[in-house]
Simulated assay, not measured.
Amino acid sequence: MDKYTRSQAMTDQPRTVKLDHHDSVRTHVCQQISTEVERLERRIETLRLTNAPHTAIMISTYERMIDRKKGFLRNWNL
């Protein structure tokens, strides 16, 4: 019963929104995706130096992933 009264009391109070968290989230997402793109580009360079049977397919897949990630950054102005 104590849990109910606490949760009810929490909903009665106005919720404060900290707008500065929005920019920090955008920055974090941008950094994370940029890091992922760099890793994929390094993988592509490594794959180009190897002679494996499915290298071309893997490179193509990684390039599509890079294009989508960069497109996401562009669409969200990151």
Results as ranks from 00 to 15, higher is better:
M1D: 08
D2K: 15
D2E: 10
K3G: 04
K3H: 07
Y4T: 15
S7H: 11
Q8G: 11
A9T: 08
A9Q: 09
M10S: 15
D12L: 11
D12Y: 05
P14W: 01
P14R: 13
R15S: 14
T16K: 08
T16E: 02
T16S: 05
V17T: 08
K18M: 02
K18V: 09
D20Q: 14
H21Q: 15
H21I: 07
H22T: 13
D23T: 13
S24F: 10
S24T: 15
S24L: 13
V25P: 02
V25K: 09
R26C: 10
T27G: 01
H28D: 11
H28I: 02
C30V: 08
Q32N: 13
I33W: 01
S34M: 03
E36Q: 13
V37Y: 00
V37D: 00
E38Y: 03
E38R: 05
R39S: 15
R39P: 00
L40A: 05
E41R: 03
E41T: 04
E41I: 04
E41N: 11
R42M: 11
I44T: 01
E45V: 09
T46K: 09
T46Y: 04
T46A: 14
L47N: 04
R48Q: 14
P53Y: 03
H54C: 08
H54G: 03
I57V: 09
M58A: 05
I59G: 00
S60R: 04
S60I: 01
T61N: 07
Y62M: 09
E63Y: 01
E63M: 07
E63K: 08
E63D: 12
R64N: 08
M65A: 14
I66G: 03
K70R: 07
K70G: 02
G71N: 07
L73F: 01
L73A: 02
R74L: 06
W76N: 05
N77K: 10
L78A: 05
